[in-house]
Design a protein around this nucleic acid. Structure first.
Length: 647
RNA sequence: GCCGGAGUAGCUCAGUUGGUUAAGAGCACGCGUCUCAUAAGCGCGGGGUCGGCGGUUCGAGUCCGCCCUCCGGCACCA
């Protein structure tokens, strides 16, 4: 039997799933369901990534055992996926024994192959980033991403994977398998990256407990992302169930976000080459969902809860929106208005209304029993066959949006067909009885076929439609059900609207706050809510002494000019009361230099000097800086004299 | 500045390797029409120099070069 093994990325359990993660799972689910429909024995894998120091820390902060915390998150994720009708066959957690077995197996193979070697890594290590930092990137010896954290100088035994050795083999593989990585944008990107040269990478951490020990040196654990990649293989028995592994490996498809393509299209294949294991057949890097064109960000409050979105109009309407309105592979935008618009147009007006009118006529004119007539006009049938071809072609190359569009061409065509044949007129003329039967049958059959095509996208709705048009929804099979069938009597049921039209409310585009309202609630209609910063856990707080180390003072801007060749930097000279200082501020995108002159701002007075674009900066201007937003400098309505201490 | 991505109708966007789905779809708007249906459906219409300028070609949203604009990342957010 033909088979298909696909995976999504496993998710970090630091935060709950949002619409972006849901998007990936839903798209993968559509592919999985399509493959099942086509008769593939399908294995659809998802899971959680738990061996992160951040997870460990977060659990400790919440006073939980890390595993208990992960258990809790697993329930959260599973609940979400179940709610969204994501039909995964297996769910792996990287803390499971089977995963440990897989990781151990890969590590051993790479070690035996001589592709792992021991080295010493020295450098500044930021615990929060779980990364070594270059000295030049440090901010006054602090991590640039975590300004309150001082990276530690770590000198540790470290194991490296000879990634460099696989530059040419990878290029060869890409050349031999042009569709290994899709879409093309990603492929080109990665090819350039590989051509630019690969360097060996560190794959272990010493002296940590949260992780999987290296088989050849239990004092070190496997670096979290190296560990994570292996889940795809360990989930099908690598290092454990050999028979299962042989059956399912290699994976046919990894569905991942575009941000992690290099892990999946460079490092992972190289690891498999080194382990002498076959490579996955396809990697697909999908795009990101934005909210009203803005990145989804927790701090901006631009996160959409997928369960909330599903509860608003329905799981299937959400799935259809995500699949049909976004070209799979590109970025997509979500907005509550557009979501409602698509619901009304695609579901209420078109498909839902079509089902209503056809089932109503079937009942009114034929008592609900519809069978082909003797006079066959095959215009709808031909459209159906053509649409099926387009649909398959699109779905087979993961063009999910085109697949959905193909199904909709049949739906639109059926509405047109009804207008053209006007069954209500035929019904008035007894001589047209046979023709009427055929028209009704054709319409019912078209709906049936469209429902089959849409079944991967809208599984529950598809079942309901099939039930109403007297067709079975059990064990759908594309070869049997995915074609025009001009035979058999259909017992049609006339019931209420599938998707009642929503009257357009004045839905605002305000994003939901991070911990949004109860499911079912409308988004806030009030004025935009200021993004609320996540509460800082008590353990991360600093003492007053710590704070007092930072000397904040007012300063009056005397001159301001753009830094040559810089996009973000302004060079300022400021009066700090006792002297005039030069400092550099990254606010050029938000402020014209002239607008700052004469303003009194707050600076960090006792900051060590740093060189930026060749200019020595003696202090730092305080500004509110949202992620991805423009900064606003702290200023005063009634400025105190320069040099006043701020505390 | 470097590296990516993108510029197609008022809005959101499709447009497989350059040539009969090339100038499209949906929404919005205007007009018309049907009455089976969820004030849904169907038809017609307005409106675009396919960012600009060159080039390759018998033929260019499509390929090449330069330029403009926007977005993202990095250099530079001390």
């Amino acid at each position: 039997m033909k088979q298909f093994f696909l995976t999504t990325a496993i998710d970090y359990v630091n935060s709950r799933p949002h619409l972006g993660t849901a998007y990936e799972k839903i798209c993968a689910d559509v592919i999985a369901r399509y493959k099942r429909l086509c008769g593939f024995e399908t294995r659809f894998l998802m899971g959680n990534d738990e061996h992160s120091q951040n997870v460990f820390k977060k659990a400790v902060d919440e006073g939980l055992d890390p595993l208990a915390y992960c258990d809790q998150m697993e329930r959260e994720f599973r609940k979400t996926w179940a709610h969204l009708d994501v039909s995964f066959d297996d769910f792996i957690r990287t803390t499971e024994p089977r995963h440990k077995a897989g990781v151990t197996e890969i590590a051993t193979r790479l070690w035996d192959a001589g592709d792992i070697y021991e080295g010493v890594y020295e450098g500044w290590y930021c615990v929060s980033c779980e990364e070594f930092k270059q000295e030049k990137d440090l901010v006054n010896l602090n991590c640039p991403l975590h300004p309150t954290l001082k990276p530690e100088w770590i000198k540790e035994k470290n194991y490296f994977f000879r990634l460099s050795k696989y530059q040419q083999p990878l290029l060869d593989h890409f050349a031999a398998h042009p569709d290994f990585l899709q879409p093309d944008v990603r492929r080109n990107e990665i090819l350039r990256l590989i051509e630019g040269g690969l360097i060996d990478i560190s794959i272990s951490r010493a002296g940590q407990s949260w992780g999987i020990p290296l088989p050849f040196d239990p004092g070190s654990v496997v670096y979290v992302w190296f560990d994570a990649l292996i889940n795809y293989a360990s989930a099908v028995g690598l290092g454990g169930d050999q028979a299962m592994f042989e059956k399912w490996w290699p994976a046919d498809l990894h569905v991942i976000g575009k941000d992690i393509t290099r892990f999946h299209a460079v490092i992972w294949p190289a690891m498999l080459m080194a382990a002498r294991l076959p490579l996955p057949r396809h990697v697909f890097g999908h795009g990101f969902m934005t909210l009203n064109g803005q990145r989804m960000s927790k701090t901006l409050g631009t996160i959409v809860d997928p369960i909330e979105a599903a509860d608003r109009l329905g799981v299937d309407p959400l799935r259809l929106y995500l699949v049909k309105e976004v070209a799979f592979g590109g970025d997509g935008d979500f907005s509550w208005e557009r979501y409602e618009e698509r619901y009304n147009v695609d579901l209420a007006n078109n498909l839902g209304n079509l089902v209503s009118r056809v089932t109503a006529m079937a009942h009114r004119y034929r008592g609900g029993r519809v069978a082909p007539g003797a006079s066959s006009h095959d215009q709808l049938a031909r459209l159906g066959e053509r649409v099926v071809v387009d649909y398959r072609h699109a779905m087979d190359r993961f063009a999910l949006h085109e697949g959905a569009a193909a199904a909709y061409r049949l739906i639109d065509g059926t509405n047109e067909f009804i207008a053209a044949t006007a069954p209500w007129k035929l019904a008035k003329d007894p001589a047209s009885a046979d023709q009427l039967s055929q028209v009704l049958f054709d319409a019912v059959e078209a709906i049936r076929l469209a429902a089959v095509l849409l079944s991967p996208v809208m599984p529950a709705s598809s079942r309901e439609i099939l039930r109403r048009v007297g067709a079975s929804s059990a064990d759908l099979d594309f070869d049997r059900d995915g074609r025009w069938r001009n035979d058999g009597e259909r017992l049609v049921l006339q019931e209420g609207p599938l998707w009642p039209r929503k009257e357009t409310t004045t839905v605002t585009d305000n994003p939901l706050p991070p911990d949004g309202p109860a499911p079912g609630a409308l988004p806030p209609v009030s004025a935009p809510v200021a993004p609320t910063a996540p509460a800082t856990p008590a353990s991360d707080r600093i003492s007053i002494e710590d704070f007092m180390k930072v000397e904040l003072r007012t300063a009056k801007v005397l001159t301001a000019e753009r830094v040559e060749k810089s996009k973000k930097l302004l060079k300022l000279s400021v009066d700090v009361g006792t002297e005039v200082r030069t400092l550099v501020a990254g606010i050029a995108e938000a402020y014209e230099p002239d607008a700052l002159i004469g303003k009194t701002v707050v600076i960090v007075f006792n900051l060590k000097p740093a060189k930026l674009m060749g200019i020595e900066s003696n202090g730092m201007v305080l500004a509110a800086s949202p992620d991805g937003g423009t900064p606003t400098v702290v200023s005063f309505e009634a400025p105190p004299p320069p040099g006043t201490r701020v505390r």
